[in-house]
């Protein structure tokens, strides 16, 4: 994808912004972040989006590079997260998409939003349900990428036991309501949906302070 730039409304102070740039005030109004935090996230976004392709957009390879230190390693879950962050489905994550998606991972974000995101993540085939075979596929993928070793029968037992708890109507698949009930009873199932970093983002990226034009 080529490099596409647009000018901001106040060019005297602001840098030229990459395609998909949205004003921090707009993003702050729609998310769990303050304006300063959105500006800090822009520092991170810039770093990630110029790591390989230098076009100010996060490509899947750059996302993988940030997660795994290599752009080559395909990973079911990382690729699923990338797909969900890419709200426009144009193969890249733009700044607004990055902020809106990360907002769900803010420790203060609504649990219902986290649960909804996780549901979409685990609904591999986009049927509107988490199917038992999808859950098995994900457990096998996790085992393949890790040092954990479980027998096929142990995997089956884990998947069956989880489904027996969650699939309350016994139709072999989880609908959004069953999922919501399940995570209420098993909140640790959403532990990967909260990033403590996001509560301290302006400390993590203090360089934003020299550029900030706002007082939150």
């Amino acid at each position: 994808m080529g490099c596409a730039w647009s000018s901001s409304s106040s060019p005297s102070r602001r840098q030229r912004r990459a395609q998909g740039y949205e004003e921090p005030a707009v993003l702050a109004a729609e998310t769990s972040f303050t304006v300063s935090e959105v500006e800090a996230l822009y520092e991170l976004y810039n770093k990630l989006s110029y790591s390989i392709f230098k076009d100010g957009l996060i490509h899947k390879e750059e996302f993988r590079l940030a997660l795994f230190r290599t752009s080559e390693r395909a990973n079911l879950f990382a690729d699923r997260v990338f797909h969900l962050f890419d709200l426009k489905r144009n193969g890249v994550i733009e700044f607004g998409e990055f902020v809106r998606s990360l907002s769900i991972f803010h420790p203060k974000a609504l649990v219902s939003d986290k649960a909804a995101f996780a549901f979409k993540l685990y609904d591999l085939r986009g049927t509107g349900y988490i199917e038992k075979e999808e859950l098995r596929e994900m457990v096998v993928a996790l085992l393949d990428e890790s040092d954990l070793c479980l027998s096929d029968s142990a995997v089956d037992e884990i998947v069956d036991n989880t489904f027996s708890q969650a699939d309350t109507n016994g139709d072999g698949r989880l609908d959004p309501r069953e999922w919501e009930e399940f995570v209420k009873k098993n909140p640790t199932s959403l532990r990967n949906m909260s990033l403590p970093y996001l509560q301290d983002i302006t400390t993590t990226f203090p360089s934003f302070a020299t550029h900030s034009e706002v007082n939150d």
Binding site: L44, K47, L48, S51, L65, A66, L67, F68, R69, N75, L76, F77, A78, D79, R80, V81, L102, F105, A118, L121, Y122, L135, M138, V139, A141, L142, E145, S146, L148, L150, A154, E157, I158, V159, N161, T162, Q165, F182, N186, T188, S189, L190, R191, N192, L195, P196, Y197, T204
Partner: peptide, 25 residues
């Protein structure tokens, strides 16, 4: 005892879901 594990908790251990790495990059 592996059968006590919740499959979704197990999945949450995936490095691909550890977005904290974005901040360490």
């Amino acid at each position: 005892e592996p059968v006590a594990l919740n499959a979704f908790e197990l999945i949450s251990m995936s490095a691909g879901l550890n977005l904290g790495n974005l901040f360490d990059s």
